[in-house]
Write a protein that binds this DNA or RNA. Structure first.
Ligand SMILES: [Mn+2]
Ligand SMILES: [Mn+2]
Ligand SMILES: [Zn+2]
Ligand SMILES: [Zn+2]
Lengths: 146, 146
DNA sequence: TTTGTAGCAAGAACTATTCTAAATATCATC
DNA sequence: GATGATATTTAGAATAGTTCTTGCTACAAA
């Protein structure tokens, strides 16, 4: 495959991604951010930064791992995606913005989104100190899909 | 303060800790493991490995950080304490073995144990795939204690 | 065009944690 | 109690995910 000059340059002027808007939540969607976001939306496998890096290389051969980290951080900070951590493992990234938890299947290593049953408000079930303002809840499950 | 010869030696033969048994859950409680565990039980502040390290130095001047990590890992693996992770921050350690979550107060940086209200079974509230064996649940809250 | 700002790439730096190797302690057996 | 095997500790080196620095490119405003 022969790359056009535009495809070989390093920055956002490269061939645009038609199906992803130029801006989301006030964040300018550069070509790199678009590819990172597209990859997350496509394979919803909660990939690590490095898996994203490898996954977008075909579309963006000159992208750097630092840029992937920058893009992921920007997307997280603008609440376009979420960062998910399991113990001390590499961070993973999730484009599902609905309130949900994460089930880590130990046999396959895969991660599955877990919804709450309808009508459940989690903070109601917790014995929280009075005057507590909760900004974020994270639920992580570990086990096996027998 | 003048240290006795026993206090200056490096291993478990040092002055025993009366109030901590010689063995817990099949783990031999060496002097180092005793001091790590005693510190966790005393200041229930979910300290990091480094905070434990600094906290037990007065009692055990020659202890090394690697040993603190070794002790913490041994205690975790024998289910004497629990390891708690917040995002990518350094791991913290908790001697409370009851099922509980952790509330991270962003203003003070402190961490508080959060119990569930009586009669709550968390897995009942989740929309889990069938035939799922859950081995561990972790609940983490972030916010402010207004 | 000029000038300013944002974004990117490459590699260095950072840091929590783990590993390695040698010394010491404890345990089992005599 | 000596002796040999095993477990633990220590200091420092190594690791790895992530962040930082620097120089460069793209884009926007004037
Ligand atoms: Mn990663
Ligand atoms: Mn630590
Ligand atoms: Zn998810
Ligand atoms: Zn706790």
């Amino acid at each position: 495959m022969i790359l056009s000059f535009a495809e070989m340059t390093t920055q956002a002027s490269e061939t645009p991604n038609k199906d992803i808007p130029e801006e989301i939540n006030g964040l300018r969607m550069t070509r790199q951010r678009q590819e990172v976001y597209r990859f997350l939306m496509g394979e919803r496998i909660h990939p690590t930064a490095n898996e994203v890096f490898m996954g977008i290389k075909k579309a963006l051969p000159n992208v750097s791992l630092a840029t992937v980290y920058n893009c992921l951080e920007a997307l997280v900070q603008h609440k376009i995606i979420r960062q998910v951590n399991f113990d001390r493992e590499p961070s993973r990234y999730c484009p599902n913005l609905d309130e949900h938890g994460h089930f880590h299947d130990e046999t396959t290593g895969t991660i599955h989104d877990v919804k709450f049953k309808p009508g459940i408000n989690l903070t109601d079930l917790l014995d929280l100190p009075p005057n507590t303002v909760i900004k974020d809840i994270e639920i992580t499950l570990r086990g096996q899909l027998a």
